[in-house]
Every structure is written in structure tokens, then in C-alpha cells.
Nucleic acid binder design. Structure first.
Lengths: 244, 244
DNA sequence: CAGTGGTCTAGACCACGCC
DNA sequence: GCGTGGTCTAGACCACTGG
């Protein structure tokens, strides 16, 4: 770290941010795997040639971003994509009765396609780029909850078409198979009426009000890597948003 | 602060949290007003008999909760309810074209009522408690955006009925008139069809899909103080949710 | 009991805003 | 130039975990 000391007053970057980036790089390039115990503050401080306090500040900001989990007396661990509570970090649909179970999935279609205009724009693709497009229904027990379309840039997910069975938890798959960690997402919500396809899949009448959620998910480097459009029944379920 | 040193190993509370609570109390009881410059870290440290670092940690957590705004070189200020960006902390509706202007309001009705079941439960009221209920339309220019009902416990907002004109920004009113600062809110979103009343006010057909948002807002002590139900057209507007 | 993260302190220097 | 918050360091002690 000492050799990267900045020129004074120009392009000042705090040391702890440089440390943080160096550590995030280890997450990105996979040298630190999800669930793994990382070295202690003292070890990292020695290794990087900075004080323990500076390492701590870097680790604290990463913890605040849900990249790490710190446990007093045990150590600092790489957060697992969608484990435990984190499972619900990106899943905001809650049953009205308070239950927060996780819906199962049934794949409708899956395969390579040409990106449409919306996909090109949100995922930053060139014209006619290939994407993997997955359509599935998600349900609580036997009750259909939503139908969704997931779009992935084929270039970032090579060999996706060779996956034998697409799991319910795809973020975990992205991490395990391609080392892609979803760090943030941005959702746009609208109310819309069910079209004929929605109605068929969800077992409702056409025109039924649906919650339309379009999500762009970003990797640790802030690149958009997934577009997901969900159309959701909200008779027994709602979307929960906490404003802080 | 020294006289409140805790008994060892029992009910351990970090010093900086005690400091934080002591400072939050100044916000609650109004001795620090919105927009005001508060004493510097050094002054607070001296006054409370702790180190500057401990004060800093307290101030940092309060800043993270949007209670304070720190500006290097200038000082630390009490956040103004719904000022600048904070205006949009609790306003998640964005125009599809990217505009984030703030809709105007037209009051439909306003007055005292008996709390209904939902209001009793979410606001923690006794049976037949009096509430203020305000109904209004909000619009971008001449285009109706939503109709909403705001419910306030009369006990927490004495004299609300004497307000000559209810402003667009009610959170600022709560703060100025009753010293009640909204610190957090929780929203439940559903898709629903417009009823006859919605249709009349919003100028749409009955059955039109609407975004139904029901919000409970909390003061700095985590008491629920406002229930707000909004029914929103989403043809040119969407609800934005950032997942981090 | 050793090792980890969590808290607390004290002091130095830096970047920023304002006069 | 001065005062503010922001960074960085070093060291001490505390609370928690697991062997």
C-alpha cells in the first residue's frame, strides 16, 4: 500500500478506501470464497502495511454493504449470496400473514435469444447481442405468485445453456459457477393489468391488477448483470419497502 | 457520562451508544432544532467527558440514520425533514422520464374521526380513539398522480384541526409544529383496481390497476405516528426501490 | 486460555470552507 | 490562518467464542 501513496492534494483517496478496493478485488477474483474466514485485522494490517484501525474501517464499510459478516470472538467471513437473512435482501415479497417463506420455481422456457431494446439499454449490450432468457413461475405451495423473465448477457455467463437444472436461488448459482456476486439492485414498480399469458400462468382473469417489478442487478463492480421482470399477484402477498 | 458507568458484564452498553442516545434526546426534546449547527466534536467530548473518537462514532451512526449532516470544514448540522435529497428519502415515486419533481397537493377533506380497526392496530390506539384524517390528491401539474389518506393520532398532534392550511410537505409541519421528527417508515405495496372514488379523483376508469401503498411512519423513538394509504396511477410514474 | 472483533483513548496530520 | 470534520496511527482494555 505504501508504494501507492498519492500525490498531495490531487486525486486524494483515503487509505482505507484503497484498502477496501484491494480487499473487494479478492472477492471479485475469487481468491476469497463465500463463507470463507478471512485473515484477522492484525494479519491484514501487517500484510498491507497499514494500521489495524485503517483495516477496520475498510472492513466496516464492507460489512455495511453486506459483503462481509463479522462475528466477535470468531472472525470475519465472506457473506454468502442469499444465505439466512441475506436471502431476503433481494426478495421483498412478504405474505400478508407475516410468513416469509421462499417460493418454489417452475421453469417455463430457457434458452439463447437476441437482446431486445430494453435489455440492450439496461444491460449495456451491443445490438443483437446474445442473452440467456429464462421464464419461470414462482409459487407458494400450489398457489402461483408471479411469473418472471430473467435476462442474462451470454458473454458474462458462458455455458449457461449447459446447466442441467436451474436452481431456485439463481444468485447463488451466479456466484458458484461464474464468481459473479450480486451486490446491489434497483427496482422499478408499477401496477398493471394481467395479459392473457399472465392470466394463463397465474390462474387469474385477464386485466387482474398485478405488481410489475423490473429489477436490474449489479455485480461488485457496479456492472449491470441481470435484468428481471416479475409480474406478481398481490392478493395474499405484498412488497415490503423499508425507508430509513 | 462518567456517573452512568455500567456494572461490568451485565447490561453492557457501549459508551458511544449512550452518547448517541443523549444526543438523540436533544433532537427529540427540541433543544437542537432542524438546520441548526451543533457543537463541534471537541466541545461535545469535553462536555460529556468522553474522547473525541467516541463522540465521532456516535455522530457517525446518527449521520448514517439521516439525523445529522456533516460537512467537512463547516460543522455538523441537524438534518431538516425532507430537505434537498432528504425530500426524496420518503418519496419513492419517480417519473418514467427520470424527472423527480415533487407533486403538488389538493386537500379533499380533513377532520377528526374515530379510528378504524387498521388505524388502531398500526398506530397502537385504544378503541374509538380520535384521529385526524386527511384526504388529498397529489398531482404533477394538472395530471393527477395519486389519492391518499393520512391518519394521525389526535393525542400526538393537538390542535391539528386549527391549522389554517395543510402544507404539501407535512413531515416538515410535524417537525415545526409538534417537534415530531419522522425517522423511518415501512411501506407495504400491492396492486389493486381503482374503485369508483379513485376513478373519479384520478380521472381514470374503474378497475384501472393502481399501486396501493400503505405506509407507517415512525418518530425518533420508534413510535408509529402516521398511517398513510396512497393509491397511485403508474402510467408515467414508477416506485423506485434500491436494494443494497 | 488464547485469539478474535469491539470499544475507547490520545495525538498527529490532512482536506475543506470561510474569513 | 483558523476551525471544522476526515483520516491515520498506536496502544490499551473489554466481550465473545471455542478449544
Amino acid at each position: 500500500m505504501t508504494e501507492t501513496l498519492q500525490a498531495k492534494a490531487l486525486t486524494f483517496r483515503p487509505l482505507y478506501l484503497q484498502v477496501k478496493e484491494s480487499l473487494v478485488r479478492r472477492l471479485i477474483n475469487g481468491s476469497w470464497q463465500p463463507g470463507q474466514l478471512i485473515p484477522s485485522e492484525m494479519e491484514l494490517a501487517r500484510e498491507l502495511g497499514v494500521s489495524q484501525g485503517t483495516v477496520r474501517k475498510a472492513l466496516d464499510t464492507m460489512t455495511a454493504e453486506n459483503l462481509l459478516i463479522r462475528r466477535q470472538g470468531r472472525g470475519t467471513f465472506v457473506a454468502e449470496p442469499e444465505e439466512g437473512r441475506l436471502l431476503f435482501q433481494f426478495f421483498r415479497l412478504v405474505q400478508d400473514n407475516g410468513g416469509r417463506s421462499f417460493p418454489s420455481s417452475r421453469i417455463l422456457r430457457s434458452g439463447p435469444e437476441k437482446a431486445n431494446r430494453q435489455e440492450m439499454e439496461t444491460l449495456g449490450l451491443v445490438r443483437d447481442a446474445t442473452v440467456w432468457r429464462i421464464e419461470r413461475i414462482r409459487m407458494f405451495g400450489k398457489e402461483p405468485l408471479l411469473v418472471e423473465t430473467i435476462t442474462l448477457p451470454a458473454a458474462r455467463f458462458p455455458g449457461f445453456d449447459t446447466i442441467e437444472e436451474i436452481p431456485n436461488n439463481v444468485y447463488r448459482l451466479y456466484s458458484q459457477r461464474w464468481g459473479i456476486t450480486i451486490g446491489a439492485a434497483s427496482e422499478k414498480l408499477k401496477a398493471t393489468g394481467a395479459d392473457l399469458r399472465d392470466a394463463r400462468h397465474l390462474g387469474c382473469r385477464p386485466g387482474m391488477p398485478l405488481l410489475h417489478i423490473s429489477r436490474v442487478a449489479f455485480d461488485l463492480e457496479q456492472n449491470p448483470v441481470e435484468l428481471r421482470v416479475s409480474r406478481c399477484l398481490t392478493e395474499k402477498t405484498h412488497y415490503r419497502s423499508e425507508l430509513r
